[in-house]
Design a binder for these strands. Structure first.
Lengths: 142, 142
DNA sequence: CCTCTTAATGGTAACAATTATCATTTATAA
DNA sequence: TTATAAATGATAATTGTTACCATTAAGAGG
């Protein structure tokens, strides 16, 4: 029994899933709304929020609360890390295998029961590096 | 020249710093507001937000945007990881030394310039484990 | 000491992201 | 078909944060 049989998949939910289907995509609720709208023009933002929550709760997508302000969602359920550009806020999957040992590294060191470990690299994306260096090279540009 | 000489430290800013002085404390803006109020009853929430931003911008405290919804702040500037209880939302410093190699592990694997790496363990705190197990042991309790 | 200038504050309004509400629609089952 | 329950769309309410602005406080120079 796959997800589409186990849960009631309305057209709205399917559209949201499709929108999150591509790899390395981490849209906000509003970006999902804008995208899904093209297929279902009458869908409401509330439905998008409600279903993003529903799909997250049932493990069909992942909610990504790292990165402050706006929540992001993704369809990639495989364990992976993220890189965030501190300048433009862009979020991407990190091209690195997750470390096996990380979740267990607190074993015996505290009384928490650890399930997961979120890792987020922070730095400057290529675009922002270019912007930044061109700005420092010629201050007059501004 | 220390921070208090380099920057204009108003009574409000000092009170906020003091509030964040203790280790393993990660209050929200509102929690800081409530605490600081006891010393400076006329301080406004806007001033708290403004100064948390000011202090973060000048590297006197750290903003912690991991953990969704509400932003948290801390006075501990040393590199460290966090544990979050997924049930009650509690955030604590992880009792483990940060891994030296983590920031550099993406070297050559992507075009980002990596500065930092945030690590957040997720699990159940002792309190929530107790609650959870007592609930599953005797469903009738509810 | 006094002004002048600038920065910080408190109070409040505005804003943005998210959640709640509720009447209507859609799906499912008897 | 009708009854029942769940999901939707539209919108209001809530929450966390930021922006605004008149007033206050703090220095600097006379």
């Amino acid at each position: 029994m796959n997800a589409y049989q186990k849960f009631k998949m309305t057209p709205q939910r399917i559209a949201i899933m499709n929108c999150l289907g591509q790899r390395n995509l981490h849209p906000t609720a509003d970006e999902v709304f804008q995208a899904v709208r093209k297929m279902l023009p009458r869908i409401s933002l509330g439905t998008v929020y409600r279903n993003l929550e529903f799909l997250t709760g049932n493990g069909l997508i992942k909610k990504n609360e790292q990165g402050g302000g706006q929540r992001r969602y993704e369809g990639n359920l495989e364990k992976h890390y993220h890189i965030k550009c501190t300048s433009c806020g862009r979020l991407e999957d990190a091209p690195i295998e997750p470390f096996e040992s990380l979740e267990n590294s607190l074993e015996g060191l505290c009384d928490y029961k650890i399930f997961e470990c979120q890792v987020e690299f922070e730095g400057l994306c290529p675009d922002c590096q270019a912007k930044h260096s061109s700005r420092t090279n010629s201050q007059a540009e501004a």
